[in-house]
Write a protein that binds this DNA or RNA. Structure first.
Lengths: 336, 336
DNA sequence: TTGTAAGCGTTATCAA
DNA sequence: TTGATAACGCTTACAA
């Protein structure tokens, strides 16, 4: 008897098949004692309801699909946070990985094959236009985490990039810094608001703008390292560097340290994310934290809300980053 | 027309439904031009085959289930490696996360609900006995990555822990070290072989054994930090410390550095895994690398082999770790 | 709580 | 390449 079915469990117990169905779905219509007996029998026989058959028959889908990049530094943390939230709302989670050999489109198409009630796409590599097209083709609510502008096709959950970099600049200003440079990740979708935050905060403090433009810069250590090298070619260093994310910040720190520049005594460095790297004691990076739990929760909430209200206009949920002060920042050097 | 079906695509094109089926499954029986037309129509209509219906009807399952911990440092890399391998063998991958709120058993049960042809369980928290029980209940081949002894219930893919720590000891001996301590992760399933490797290699070199037993030690930075503190209480430090994994090694390095002990000039430190942390330039840890690509490939191979030969006895695939020398190790201090 | 029946979207198997 | 038909395991609905 390979792979028992619901009928097998029912027969084993001498009850009807739909009684077993009721118990497996936690629906009203069975006494507590029967529930126990049915669960017991199912476990003994190694029976698991066939998810495919279930989703085929069910009137409404009970799964939320999640596309994510396993190799990424922060996305898996958001995935973790999505699970309990989805469960609380009565949905199961279906994962689909976006890897070096598997595009966001492929990942999303698979989720569509599972007939998910909604899709959560974490940090895709797609442009806004491509994402809109994808979302429209999906015909189910799509929530994008990490980037995106208000639009008619999908919901957005992202942190307020402006606020994050502003927080970092303000922190540095309070430490007496006046010459603060910014590493701009020109090629990333979420880079623009972060740059804006830097510009706003420096303007408010009456500081000069110093944006380091790296050719095709993205959120990598390499981009940060390149920015660091550009800085070292200058006659005078700034007293602080605000990076677009933690990895860039790490790249900057390494290049500066290798050149004998002491962080934070000579130059303070800040990041964005509060990734695992930032928390390592040898990095110990002051950063703008994006809470993965808040992001995951907001994404599930947005998805469920749009499943229940399909005609409501897509929303943008903004998560406020918080400032995490560590030892990569310190008072501005008194005489520069 | 929400959610088009195969019939819709066929009608749209004026062909039969099973022609569409043949094309979507890449089966022989359709001309190249028809294939193109069908694919084109499917994409236009936003049609994706219903995976549930497919798995319900198909004689043989075409999916491999993977249980993993998203928050872990190395498991997501193995997941990435599994994708291309599974595709090559004609299987799709179904992921199931093991999180703080979701046990290995729950993750595996879900995979069973998808009627996977085989299960790959990465680094479970289960004991060998619990894992055997789970595997038997599954009734499909189970491959465990990371730990496990030869047994009749499941296949094992793991690195040769003995070889990894032996490599580290031999590397240190070649650098002139004679007093090499070992941080033992007593509570972990894979800890025993790694300890053995240390014992064997030190015996071969005629060195004294120095195993640091930390109460309930596991593979965390905290365990390494505790071991480091124990070392600092001694009258004399060893010249090298071999840790059970990279995180422990990092903990050791941090505690030693904070106490003014210079790594590697006074004490060399080695890890195990070659995780992202080990590669960071501020850690730059000499370590025994477990190649995630090899692990993923071996797991898929084992799974596919057992799907095709169900009665073959479960195997143990051993991956040889390789030595990655970085700057956390150096020549033994001449006079100690 | 049971029995009966239909049907979800596919694959599998035929004969044409 | 088509058409017809059955079947996979489940949920849904309804009457008993």
């Amino acid at each position: 008897m390979p792979e028992p079915t619901m009928a097998d469990v029912a027969a084993h117990l001498g009850v009807s098949r739909q009684l077993v169905s009721i118990v497996m779905r936690d629906m009203p219509g069975a006494s507590e004692t029967t529930r126990q007996r049915v669960r017991q029998a199912a476990s003994e026989l190694g029976y698991q309801p066939h998810i495919g058959a279930r989703s085929l028959r069910q009137t409404r889908s009970t799964q939320i699909g999640v596309s994510f990049a396993p190799a990424h530094t922060t996305e898996p943390d958001i995935v973790e946070a999505i699970y309990p939230e989805a469960t609380r709302s009565g949905y199961r989670v279906v994962l689909s990985a976006q890897t070096a050999t598997r595009s966001t489109t492929q990942a999303v198409d698979e989720l569509l094959g599972y007939r998910c009630a909604a899709l959560i796409v974490i940090g895709s590599d797609l442009t806004d236009a491509a994402m809109r097209k994808l979302a429209r083709r999906a015909k189910v609510p799509v929530v994008v985490i990490g980037a995106g502008v208000p639009n008619a096709a999908y919901d957005v959950v992202r942190s307020v990039g402006e606020a994050g970099t502003s927080l970092m600049v303000e922190h540095l200003v309070s430490l007496g810094h006046r010459r603060i440079a910014y590493v701009h990740a020109g090629s990333m979708a979420s880079a623009e608001p972060r740059l804006q935050g830097y510009l706003t905060a420096t303007a408010a403090a009456g500081l000069e703008v110093d944006v380091i433009q790296v050719q095709g810069a993205d959120y990598t250590e390499e981009a940060g390292a390149t920015a660091g090298r550009l800085l070292l070619q200058r006659a005078a260093l700034p007293t602080a560097v605000v990076a677009g994310n933690d990895q860039q910040a790490f790249g900057v720190m390494v290049v500066l340290s290798r050149a004998g520049v002491i962080v934070p005594d000579q130059v303070s460095v800040t990041g964005f994310d509060d990734s695992r790297t930032a928390r390592l004691s040898c990095v110990d990076l002051t950063t703008a934290r994006q809470d993965p739990v808040l992001m995951g929760r907001a994404a599930v909430e947005a998805a469920v809300h749009r499943i229940d209200n399909p005609d409501v206009a897509p929303s943008v949920a903004l998560i406020q980053p918080t400032s995490v002060v560590r030892s990569s920042t310190g008072p501005a050097p008194s005489a520069s």
